[in-house]
Computed example of a mutant assay.
Amino acid sequence: MGNAIEFEVSEGIARIVLNRPDAGNAFNAQLARELAEAALACDLDPSVRAVLLTGRGKMFCAGGDLKAFAGFGDEATRCVKQLADDLHKAISLFARMDAPLVVAVNGAAAGAGFSLSIAGDIVISADNAKFTMGYTAVGMSPDGSSTWYLPRLIGLRRAQEMAFTNRSLNASEALDWGLVTRVVPAAELDEAAMDLCRRLAAGPRGAQAMVKKLLLCSSGNALEVQMEIEGRAIARAAGAPQGIEGVQAFAARRAPVFR
C-alpha cells in the first residue's frame, strides 16, 4: 500500500488505517485506489480472519476531498466516477469477503466517510464521533453504498431525513437509531475494536463467512428461498471440520478450537 493507507496483517487480523489526517482522511483518487487494493488483499488472503478499519487522527473520514474535486475542471465527471468506482470496489469486496469487517469510527464521519462507516459488519463508535451525510450541502448525491445500507439499518423515513437535510447525529443518537453497534470512550476505541477482532479471528471462519452471505442476500429473497439457502449452508457446516469441532467441543464441555 502507499502513503494514503496503512495496512498490516498480524495474527489473522488485517488492520487498515485511513492515513490522510491533515485532510480529515478525505477521499482523493489515491486513497480510494489504495482502499480498494487493501480490500482485495483481505479478500484473497486466507489467513485474514477479521478486518479492522479506522482513521488516523481526529476524524474518521470527511468524505470526498473537495479541494481535489475543485481542481478537476472539465474532467470532474470522469475523475469523480473513477474515484467512486474504486470506493465501491472496496465496499463490495468488504461485503463479500469471508472475514467480518469491524469499523472503528474515531471521529467525524461525513459524506463517503459516513457511507464507509455504516458498511461494516460491526461498527464501534467513539463517544465523540459524529455522523452526517452532507452530500446535498455541496450539490452532490450520495455514493459509497449509503442509499442501500441506510434504509435497511434505520428505515426509509430516517434515511430520507439524513439524506435531504444532512442531519448530524452524535454517537449516542447513532446508537439509538441503529447506525452503530456500540459506543465506547474515545480513549478506549482502539483496544475495544482490537479485542473484538481477536474474538472474531478465533472464531469459525467458514461459519462467519456464511453469516455475511446470508444477511447480504436476505433482503432480495423470498422466505422459502432464504430458508433453502440456510438449510444447505448449515448442512454443509455440520460436516465441515469447524462444525464437527464446534459440536464435539460443546458435547465435551470444552472451548472449541477453530483452525
Rank of each mutant, 00 (worst) to 15 (best):
M1D: 00
M1Y: 04
M1H: 02
A4E: 10
F7N: 04
S10N: 13
E11C: 12
I13F: 06
I16Q: 11
I16R: 08
V17K: 11
L18A: 01
R20Y: 14
R20H: 13
R20G: 06
P21V: 13
D22A: 15
D22E: 14
A23I: 02
G24V: 07
G24D: 13
N28D: 15
Q30P: 01
L31I: 00
A32F: 01
A36S: 13
A36L: 05
A38N: 06
A39Q: 08
D43Y: 13
D45R: 07
V48K: 06
R49Y: 03
V51N: 11
L53A: 07
C61R: 02
A62Q: 11
G63V: 07
G63A: 02
G63D: 02
G63C: 04
A68E: 15
A70V: 00
F72C: 11
G73Y: 05
G73T: 07
A76H: 11
R78A: 13
C79P: 00
V80N: 10
L83T: 06
D86W: 04
D86P: 00
K89F: 04
I91V: 12
L93T: 03
F94Q: 05
A95K: 06
D98K: 15
V102I: 14
G107M: 10
A110C: 08
A110E: 11
G111E: 01
S117E: 02
I118D: 01
A119S: 15
A119Y: 00
V123H: 00
I124P: 01
S125D: 05
D127P: 06
D127R: 00
A129M: 08
K130H: 12
F131V: 06
T132E: 09
T136N: 12
A137H: 10
V138Y: 08
S141W: 07
S141E: 10
S145W: 14
Y149G: 03
L150I: 12
P151I: 12
R152G: 01
L153V: 05
I154L: 05
Q160L: 13
A163K: 00
L169R: 02
A171E: 05
A171T: 09
S172K: 14
A174L: 08
A174V: 09
L175Y: 05
L179Y: 10
V180W: 03
T181N: 00
R182G: 03
V183M: 06
P185K: 04
E188A: 07
L189N: 07
D190M: 03
D190H: 09
A192V: 04
M194K: 12
M194T: 14
L196D: 09
L196T: 04
L196I: 04
L196H: 10
R199S: 15
A201V: 12
G206P: 02
Q208H: 03
M210G: 00
K213E: 14
L214V: 08
L214A: 03
S219K: 07
L223E: 14
Q226K: 00
G231C: 04
R232I: 15
A237S: 14
A240N: 11
A240Q: 12
A240T: 07
P241K: 08
P241S: 06
I244E: 05
V247P: 02
R259A: 11
